[in-house]
Design a binder for these strands. Structure first.
Length: 566
RNA sequence: UGGGGAUUAGUGUAACGGUAGCACGACUGACUCUGGAUCAGUUAGUCAAGGUUCGAAUCCUUGAUCCCCAGCCA
């Protein structure tokens, strides 16, 4: 990890520091425990960053664990996808890749201990009855009629449940806690349910599957996790997490570890959605092209778009760790991408919306090579040769026939610089029958070769350009905000997604003209198109037809000026 | 109406009884062979009301607002 250490200790790092200092833990162990039932998104990236970042910072160990306790919702294909995404973000789990389902035997043994100790019982109530008897937020629940079965009877029933004697939903194992607790999670929570379903990792070995609350603390304990860092939604579950571990240790002679659960807040980003449910709606509804659509804040989407994992980590570090559910402006996220990409991305000239320029006084058929700097922020990146010839393309936006006051670029009679090349002066704008400009007739000053005038005269603008004969045709996909709405918290419960999607979230440009240096690149290659933004080669590219995704634009002061004058 | 959390400029985040700081955004200006980058500056804040104290964002009391919890999901 290249990111600097945080200078301030957040409340979690403070506790870890204290635990280390007090000798409560010798070595920090954290974990990221996704359920393999979907793709990871930027919210997960925060959890990964916190868990991995803390393990790394304190010289500890980080585990990646599939929390696969529900065979009805999980699929093996997600396991590989999750590993790829976590690795891409830069979190290294070393040898510690685990499946919760590998601990099923151990969990069962411990459940038996709890039953023997009279701390758990088999309940024959139907799901509806259980729900009804749980009470409400403001009224207590009532005890199950099966609550006082003897340990022997419970043990017998539990073994038969495990053996497959009973139908799905007919019985559950419940912890005997307190049906009147103001915390709903403590009203005799279900520990095991019967599910005659094949498990992606364990096959048909089990028909009894543990619930999250029962399983999670055990998974952590088995792996020797010291700090179980999770989402703030689990704050209400912490008493239960602790109850199970304590109950086990009261019921047994040999104690098991008791990891510490600490919760942090998730966050929202403006102009996008980060919940698994909403992302699913967008994908299923065909509003985006898939889970890796570059408009999506999924890890796969961000990777394809060209966002840099280093910058994602810088962002995570900057937003910090707190218990406040924040809504962060997308602009802050983009800032860290620009900051990183500015330092590392090679520059290249690419004309998005080409306008042909003919240099009338430049010899026909001649081509010369001009030296261009690969990255002004990084001298080590060196230079390259860019071909120049009589016919060029410039950006259509860089010419105005009747320019307003603050427009510095090309206009009839005006002189500008072509980057790394020559000063040119526009002599005439050629129009078609509709009156749209189709070509510019210009002249150049041979004395300005390389971009400087020997007489010291200045020019107010420098334009990017591409030699027509040497240009590589490409496709560019320009992305804008996914949602027109700023705050995703304002979305209705059942949004009309078609109306929510920003109509400018995607613009596809064909016939983009690139200088030769940008051609033949592998998918994932990042660069800056000078004056336009950072781009990344899309996997849809073919050998002769590259496709570039615009990761993020450059800051654009001219755009602001335009907006203000309107 | 039960329980658990939270609240500092537009957005985030520091300040652990002693000058409310930083970043992003917005706005000025300088510089520039990217209207990029860089540099300088401006803008704007302690949820409210009481109390304790020489001194309160911080401690106490009361209130407001927002989030989470009634899956055999995680």
């Amino acid at each position: 990890m290249t990111t600097e250490e945080p200078k301030k200790l957040d409340f979690i790092r403070q506790q870890v520091t204290d635990d280390l200092a007090a000798g409560r833990v010798e070595r920090v162990v954290t974990r990221f425990p996704p359920e393999p039932n979907g793709y990871l998104h930027i919210g997960h990236a925060k959890a990964i960053w916190i868990n991995y970042g803390i393990a790394e910072q304190f010289g500890g160990v980080f585990h990646l664990r599939m929390d696969d306790t529900n065979p009805m919702k999980e699929e093996a294909e997600f396991v590989e996808a999750i590993k790829q995404d976590v690795a891409w973000l830069g979190a290294d789990w070393g040898e510690n890749f685990h499946y919760a389902s590998d601990y099923f035997e151990r969990m069962y043994e411990l459940a038996v201990d709890l039953v023997r100790a009279g701390k758990a019982y088999v309940d024959d109530q139907t799901p509806d009855e259980i729900r009804a008897n749980r009470g409400t937020l403001t009224s207590p629940g009532v005890d199950s009629p099966y609550r006082d079965r003897t340990p022997d009877e419970n043990l017998d029933l539990l073994e038969r449940m495990k053996a497959g004697e009973f139908a799905d939903g007919s019985r559950v194992l419940r912890a005997k806690i307190d049906m009147t607790s103001p915390n709903m999670n403590l009203r005799d929570p279900v520990m095991y349910r019967i599910l005659h379903a094949a498990h992606p990792h364990r096959g048909d070995a089990w028909c009894l599957y543990p619930m999250y609350d029962w399983a999670h603390g055990l998974e952590d304990a088995v792996e020797g996790v010291t700090h179980s860092l999770c989402d703030i939604d689990f704050e209400n579950h912490r008493p239960l997490y602790d109850w199970f571990l304590d109950a086990i240790n009261e019921a047994r002679d040999e104690p098991i570890d008791h990891p510490k659960q600490i919760e942090f807040a998730r966050f929202n980003l403006t102009h996008t959605v980060t919940s698994k449910r909403r992302l699913r709606q967008l994908v299923a509804g065909g509003h985006v092209t898939g889970w890796d659509d570059p408009r999506l804040p999924t890890i796969r989407g961000m990777r394809r778009r060209g966002y840099a994992p280093e910058a994602i980590r810088d962002f995570m570090q900057h937003i910090g760790v707190s218990k406040f559910v924040s809504t962060i402006e997308l602009a802050l996220f983009e800032h860290f991408q620009r900051q990183h990409l500015n330092k590392v991305a090679p520059r290249v000239m690419g004309v998005l919306r080409p306008l042909k320029v003919v240099i009338e006084n430049y010899p026909e058929g001649r081509t010369e090579q001009l030296e261009a700097i690969n990255n002004p922020e990084d001298p080590a990146a060196g230079t390259r040769q860019v071909p120049f010839s009589r016919e060029l393309y410039i950006e259509r936006d860089d010419f105005m026939e009747d320019p307003p006051r603050k427009f510095f670029r090309l206009a009839p009679g005006r002189e500008v610089r072509l980057r790394y090349a020559y000063f040119i002066t526009c002599r005439e704008a050629v129009k078609d029958a509709d009156g749209t400009v189709v070509e510019l007739r210009c002249t150049y000053d041979p004395a300005t070769r390389g971009g400087d005038a020997p007489d010291g005269r200045k020019v107010k603008a420098t334009l990017h350009w591409v030699s027509a004969a040497d240009a590589v045709d490409a496709e560019a996909r320009l992305y804008g905000h996914l949602l027109a709405r700023e705050n995703p918290g304002d979305l209705p419960d059942e949004p009309d997604w078609a109306a929510e999607i920003n109509p400018d979230s995607l613009a596809v440009l064909h016939g983009v003209k690139l200088e030769p240096a940008a051609a033949g690149r592998e998918p994932g290659w990042r660069c800056q198109f000078e004056r336009k933004g950072y781009f990344c080669v899309d996997p849809d590219s073919t050998a002769d037809a590259p496709v570039f995704n615009r990761t993020v634009t450059l800051r654009d002061t001219w755009k602001k000026i335009q907006k203000k004058s309107r």
